[in-house]
Write a protein that binds this DNA or RNA. Structure first.
Lengths: 212, 212
DNA sequence: TAGATTGTTAATCGATTAACAATC
DNA sequence: TAGATTGTTAATCGATTAACAATC
């Protein structure tokens, strides 16, 4: 599974979509698929799909196509979904609770351990089966359980300071919903900055474009 | 403001980020900025920024740079944020309520009118100042108020059918959180499919990559 | 074997970067 | 005017598509 050369960012960004579609195909009972059929389904070209998969060493078979189970296994392991990573959530407000109650963390490769909030009234409550702990216990909890990543659903103003503290304490990645763009790549800590407003602005633009 | 040739998708996708950064600069009291300084702030090249802005006719001034107010105004109007668009939200579950309570729709160009839910217990409740109506009233409401877009925070299984109905009733865009990929571009109705799981899987991959 | 479909190389296309004349 | 910085053209780079030999 050695990579010949660095895989481009464009390919990496398509991997979750591939994985998602393959999971759906499996759920539909499909056992194999050609690059051509997958391309049609996903709105890509067959060429691109073969190029993309071959960045990781090619897991198809001539004259047959790609085996769904094998593909899922390979893509899952490339994405690191099989690594048993752990996560904690910071900020059990509306958005935090929505994630706790609804979001399937394990499908994206993470076991969510618990949540933290500064509000003492939330202490001990449970959402989606995850308990809320006091922010005071955060440092000792991280030291003891060494979660890989933190989900930031805290207010925006706190984001930069808390991010730095978390990195100091050993957190290795951030899923950041605060609206503040965080860039800790220099420290070797990847961040996914989620900006829902960007998505809605794009929609606004696209709707306007349909009027021309 | 006529566009010489079709603006590339890559440029369009950067517009919300430009707009966001310009808003931040304005909030910081900055009145003008050079492409060089903006590039440094955003992690782009000055060349790219000038290329991007010039897709829309260039709103800078030699020897001076870009005026923040003008830039905000121009980018906002390109994105269609000044068009007074309206939106409704379908599905007042956890995620729907999180958006109602927290999300600033107007900053992304939409006036949110109200929410709808099939659960009669939610009827008449308010979240974030928006009232929840019965799904039964949806068709007549759309006919009367003609909202531009619908925010889908309903269960995944209902998504395709409801999307089609909404389009029939005149909805012109969808902000889709259901997890089901919807493609109504063929009908001239743009969709922003939000897949939070894709973002988290990417983070999982990036964290794994830091171990190599 | 014949048909199908991959893996992979070459060709095309588009996007980013560099350079510099225009001009505020 | 001199300095700064844009607008814009040309050069480079990278990503996508096409083509086809390899092979299941």
């Amino acid at each position: 599974m050695e990579r010949k050369q660095e895989v481009s960012k464009a390919v990496i960004q398509r991997l979750p979509r591939y994985y998602r579609n393959i999971c759906e195909l499996k759920a539909e009972g499909v056992q194999r698929i050609s690059s051509r059929a997958l391309a049609e389904r996903m709105g890509l070209t067959a060429s691109q799909i073969r190029q993309d998969f071959n960045c990781f060493g090619g897991f198809g078979q001539q004259g047959y196509g790609y085996n769904i189970d094998k593909l899922m296994e390979e893509l899952g392991s490339i994405l690191g979904l099989r690594s048993g990573r752990t996560a904690i959530l910071l900020g059990a407000g509306n958005l935090g609770r929505a994630l706790l109650n609804n979001f399937d963390f394990s499908a994206s490769g993470f076991q969510l351990l618990c949540a933290f909030d500064a509000n003492p009234e939330l202490k001990g409550k449970e959402y989606g089966g995850y308990s809320v702990r006091s922010s005071d216990d955060l440092p000792s909890y991280i030291a003891a359980h060494k979660p890989d990543v933190a989900v930031l659903t805290i207010p925006r103003s706190n984001a930069p300071d808390i991010a730095r503290e978390l990195v100091d304490q050993g957190i290795r990645g951030l899923w950041n919903f605060t609206g503040e763009d965080l860039h800790l790549g220099g420290l070797g800590v990847p961040v996914e900055n989620v900006h829902l407003s960007d998505s809605l602005m794009t929609l606004c633009h696209l709707v306007s474009a349909t009027e021309e």
